[in-house]
Structures are given as C-alpha cells and as structure tokens.
C-alpha cells in the first residue's frame, strides 16, 4: 500500500503527489550561534516515530500543509 497523506483541502492523497519540506529543528542544548546555524543548515533529527511535518501538495491544492505522521509505519 502506498503512503497516503491527508490534505485538509483535497482529502487523502498518495505521497507521490507531495513534496516533503524539511523543518530545521536544532536541539535546545545547542546554544552557540555558529553551531546552531550548522545544525539548521544540515542536521536533521530523522525521527523514528510520530512527527509533525510540512508537506507541499504539488499535485493538488499547491499549498503547504502541516501533517502528523508515524515514520515507522508510513
């Protein structure tokens, strides 16, 4: 089964219609400016489990949506 993401405007649509948007999430313990910038630019939590994500529905409404997803299932 293909992963479906639920678009608030268009309804559930397969992941192929979407473009994933990485949201930088530097951890709180990084306080020094340069370190935070490197983290924002390159590093990712790559969460295993439930995560709030940003997706662009390129094949439908062409708007950014906020979607909660479990990366161990989807």
């Amino acid at each position: 089964m293909v992963l479906r993401l639920d678009c608030p405007h268009c309804g559930p649509r397969p992941a192929d219609e979407w473009v994933y948007g990485e949201v930088p999430d530097p951890p709180d313990y990084l306080t020094e400016g340069d370190e935070r910038d490197v983290d924002r630019g390159f590093m990712m939590s790559n969460t295993e489990g439930v995560k709030v994500e940003r997706w662009f529905h390129a094949g439908g409404c062409r708007r950014w949506q906020t979607i909660t997803r479990d990366t161990t299932i989807g």
């Binding site: 268009c10 309804g11 559930p12 649509r13 397969p14 219609e17 094949g59 439908g60």
Partner: peptide, 21 residues
C-alpha cells in the same frame, strides 16, 4: 488513480491521474 473519486456529484477533486496532476 491512487485515490478515491467522490461518490456523488456535482463534486470537485484534484490529484494525480495516471501520474499527472
């Protein structure tokens, strides 16, 4: 299409058809 068409009309839907938006 990998998504369900609406069951009643008139209705509007958008998404991929044969891989094309």
């Amino acid at each position: 299409s990998a998504w369900e068409f609406p069951r009643h009309d008139p209705a509007f839907a958008q998404g991929h058809l044969a891989g094309i938006p």
